[in-house]
Amino acid sequence: MDIIVCVKKIPDPEIPPAKFKLDMESKRVIPPEGIPPVINPYDEQAVELALRLKDKYGGKITVLTIDNDADTSIVKHALAMGADEGIVLADKAFEGSDSFSTSHILSQAIQKVGNFDLVLCGRQAADWDEGLVGAIIAENLSLPLVTLAEAVDVVDGKLKVKRVTLDGYQIFAVPTPAVATVSNEVGQPRLPSGWGIISASRKQIPIWKAGDLDADPSQIGAKAVRRRLVKLFIPVREKKCEIIEGETTAEASVKLAERLRKAGVI
């Protein structure tokens, strides 16, 4: 099964909230000092799901990213995990793109890659938390879509996809090629192996520009956006926590129970 996985580079979302900074004037997030950006963790889980399918059914995994600095680091990370090919889409014309433009660029690149059975995207990117790109790609390419996929199998030549819902799951059958967004219930992605890191570092990563993609100029970049960011701010929280103290943890625990009883909470 040949799979294309779309991945995005984002500021490390695991930083403590105290380190999160933004500039309200320019409406931009300031990347935390000394902490390098990472592959979006949800996309890393999409790479993991692709690798599980490759382990079971064979085939080739191609990783796509848009990075206007032509940085190959997160593509190399996916290659080190076990993906086969990586392509970086980089062009000044892509700057300022919204989810629709991004999806258009990725859709064009997917068509240029050509042969594929499945396109996987993370459920959302942990920077802007939009959760849009996978679905828009499916619409652009007129392909069946399953969102929040936890597992994929092949049964009678069709994909059997398990979708996570709030209270359970659904199972869908879809013909290939198809698009799926990957749910976090996939679990921990594998770590790159030593050999994987070495072979990824030797791999050539092609850079594709707008002209390579037959992208529609009216659909990409800042001029194509369907909405405008008017404000970006850090919400103020006003809670004050009362720490229940005691000589021992046990004493504090007893006090907490009494306190809750007195407050009528229990």
Partner: peptide, 11 residues
């Protein structure tokens, strides 16, 4: 956005 670290207002 950013996992709830920030709020964005779009028009």
């Amino acid at each position: 956005v950013y996992g709830g670290n920030a709020m964005a207002v779009w028009a």
